[in-house]
């Protein structure tokens, strides 16, 4: 299977663990990722906050490249995905004449977790699982941008997404239902208003603990960073102990498939997942 791939800026930098696990897992699943040539930043929160026209154009340029390539484009970062989808709707909508880029609606933009959770891909994963994640109690945390608003994302289940739940069940994990799948982590506020993020992630830890989860599974590098990097700090603010490894879903696919890269990816986290995985005899 061949698809276009839009990694986004973070995956070239701080989210290296996500990128490495994606590359390894897609190789094993025979999904050929062709990086869009000369792609640019989607504009992220900054562009849509300060300049609507630029936000649509920045993402629009990438979509034009994707149409030239001719394959559906898979996007791991939910914020990039959301921005590309927003541009797609704008450039195909009634106001399309306002922008310098023209689209024909020929390629589909996929959120990576949704792409991997298709029946066909899950069948392949299932056939390749070497080490089922038995006994690992996870909550899947989707955050905002892969689901909302459904008019943009085309999500069918925006209040209760299930892509990662399906993937983790296929890997044999114990997926615990909870009501905070799509609550916001505060995203880029972590730079200018970390206090907001600490409050939001504090609630997420608490809710995950209440349902008996041992770790989070995410598909967004901002969610991952916000939940992983400041755990000690939030714990001391709340006056409790918190230990929640924060996995990318692709890292856990790699683990269940027995990929040799797993330890390297996990070594890039702040909260050490090995303690949990060793205790479960999973690593």
């Amino acid at each position: 299977m061949k698809v276009s791939y839009y990694p986004g800026c973070s995956l070239e930098g701080t989210a290296r663990d996500y990128e490495e696990s994606i590359q390894a897992v897609c190789k094993e699943l025979e999904i050929e990722l062709q990086e869009l040539p000369d792609w640019n930043c989607c504009g992220a929160t900054a562009a849509h906050s300060l300049n609507h026209w630029a936000a649509i154009s920045l993402s629009g340029r990438n979509l034009v490249i994707a149409e030239k390539m001719g394959e559906d484009v898979v996007v791991p970062c939910p914020l990039c995905f959301n921005r590309l989808k927003t541009a797609e709707k704008a450039l195909l909508g009634v106001d399309k004449g306002q922008f310098q880029y023209t689209l024909h609606g020929k390629v589909k933009v996929w959120d990576m977790a949704n792409f991997i959770s298709q029946d066909g891909v899950l069948d392949i994963i299932e056939s390749k699982v070497k080490k089922p994640l038995e006994g690992l109690k996870v909550v899947c945390y989707y955050g905002c941008m892969s689901s909302r608003p459904p008019k943009i994302t085309d999500a069918k289940d925006c209040e209760n997404p299930v892509s990662m739940d399906r993937i983790l069940k296929c890997l044999g994990a114990d997926v615990i239902p909870w009501s905070y799948k799509t609550d916001c982590c505060g995203a880029s506020h972590v730079i200018a208003r970390p206090d907001l993020v600490f409050k939001l992630v504090g609630k997420l830890y608490q809710k995950a603990a209440e349902v008996g989860a041992e770790c989070f599974v995410v598909s967004c590098q901002m969610c991952q960073a916000n939940l992983d990097m400041y755990q000690d700090k939030v714990a001391s603010k709340l006056g409790t102990e918190i230990y929640f490894p924060i996995f990318y879903f692709t890292e856990l696919i790699g683990l269940a498939l027995g990929n040799p890269g797993v330890k390297t990816w996990l070594s890039r986290h702040f909260v050490d997942p090995l303690r949990l995985l060793k205790g479960k005899n999973l690593i």
């Binding site: 930098g13 930043c41 992220a44 900054a46 300060l50 200018a192």
Partner: peptide
Amino acid sequence: PEQKTYIFHSVFLNDVKRRGRVFEG
């Protein structure tokens, strides 16, 4: 009122202007 948030957005777009992608460091 939220100067720091505004500054963050501005420096972000400046960085994109410089090379087309964001360099986090």
